[in-house]
Design a protein around this nucleic acid. Structure first.
Length: 303
RNA sequence: GGUACCAUAGCUCAGUUGGUAGAGCAAUGGACUGAAAAUCCAUGUGUCCCUGGUUCGAUUCCAGGUGGUACCA
């Protein structure tokens, strides 16, 4: 029996969680999350983790499974999810992947190249040097270390330039040599279901959800994490804006408005990424039966 | 009811000594291979409230209307 990974994706706030429970129940299976922030157990309200009842109804993996103090990235996500899947497929024919983190989904479905994890000290050094000597100096270094990638990279995107330099220094090889851009073949079938709704409606939902998060105590949650605000995992919509408020830089009202705006922009970026993927079949979140029928047909065809 | 002021982008407003307009915010499109809820790039949005008048030409000046705000009754 061929194994199937059902991927349920879509922009933040579209309604993935509610539908995912129904799909998981229908296929009598479990959920593996591909959400880069819900993995952290220190964050709940601001990342819109599934409700307690939902977590009890269906077994979820990669929700609150890691700490903000751990290192977690697309690579870990790929490795750990694949390992989990190989275990789950002993018993199950279908597993449901749910989340909106574009690169995590991509890593699980297509894989990413093997590149060593950057030593934190090296990263710190490169970041500091960029601050002191300027981005141009870093660009020149990249040109020298890896002229091929220098010509490909968006030179204005400092983060990418830094990363490329780090990898060159770390491996002693040009970054471009490690970038094979090949799609890894998976031993399971993948069915991608995208959820979307009218833009105005999506934004309205996002705005309302932020107000709800504030009522549920997001500020308190952010307060507790304030001392770790420099962590990458806390460079997160819903938290970074409240850190600005807590630091006294903006008012609470401004922070809430910014959370709404940044969530909207995030949703837009997600759609921009997903729209490129022609394998995705799109549905409105209330088309529960259509989604299930589509998945079942697809499973039959590929069997 | 009277008087004054205002009416320009989704919002807040600027501006045109008369030649059909621009800022901020919001928004829109895109890129993306171990920091990705990150990071980066690009782009404007218009019956200038309506109807007349003056004028070669009115969003701009004039009159009337409509709506809003303030004050007086």
């Amino acid at each position: 029996m061929p194994k199937t990974l059902i991927v349920l994706l879509g922009p933040t706030g579209v309604g993935k969680t509610d539908l995912s429970i129904k799909i998981a129940q229908h296929f009598n299976t479990v959920i593996s999350s591909s959400d880069s922030r819900q993995v952290y157990r220190e964050m709940s309200i601001g990342t819109a983790v599934p409700e307690k009842e939902q977590l009890e109804a269906i077994k979820h993996h990669f929700i609150h499974s890691h700490s903000i103090h751990d290192y977690f990235s697309s690579w870990e996500c790929e490795q750990q999810t694949l390992e989990l899947l190989s275990n789950l497929y002993i018993e199950k024919d279908e597993v449901l992947l749910v989340g909106g983190s574009m690169m995590y989904i991509d890593a699980i479905c297509n894989g990413i190249d093997e590149i060593p994890t950057i030593d934190p000290e090296l990263r710190n050094e490169v970041v500091e040097r960029t601050k002191n000597e300027g981005v141009e100096s870093l660009r020149m270094q990249l040109k020298q270390l890896d002229p091929v990638f220098y010509n490909q990279v968006d030179l204005k995107n400092t983060k990418r330039v830094i990363h490329a330099v780090e990898i060159c220094l770390m491996t002693g090889k040009p970054y471009s040599e490690l970038r094979t851009n090949t799609r890894k073949k998976r031993d399971f079938n993948i069915i991608k279901v995208g959820l979307n709704r009218d833009r105005a409606e999506l934004y309205e939902r996002i705005n309302l959800r932020v107000d709800l998060m504030m009522k549920e105590g997001l500020l308190k949650e952010a307060q507790a994490l304030f001392e770790y605000r420099h962590y990458n995992s806390l460079n997160t919509v819903g938290y970074k804006e409240l850190f600005e408020y807590l630091a006294g830089n903006i008012s609470l009202d401004e922070a809430v408005e910014l959370i709404k705006r940044n969530s909207r922009r995030y949703a837009k970026r997600q759609l921009s990424w997903f729209n490129r993927d022609k394998e995705i079949e799109w549905f409105h979140p209330n088309q529960e039966e259509d989604v299930i029928r589509y998945i079942e047909d697809k499973i039959k065809k590929e069997a």
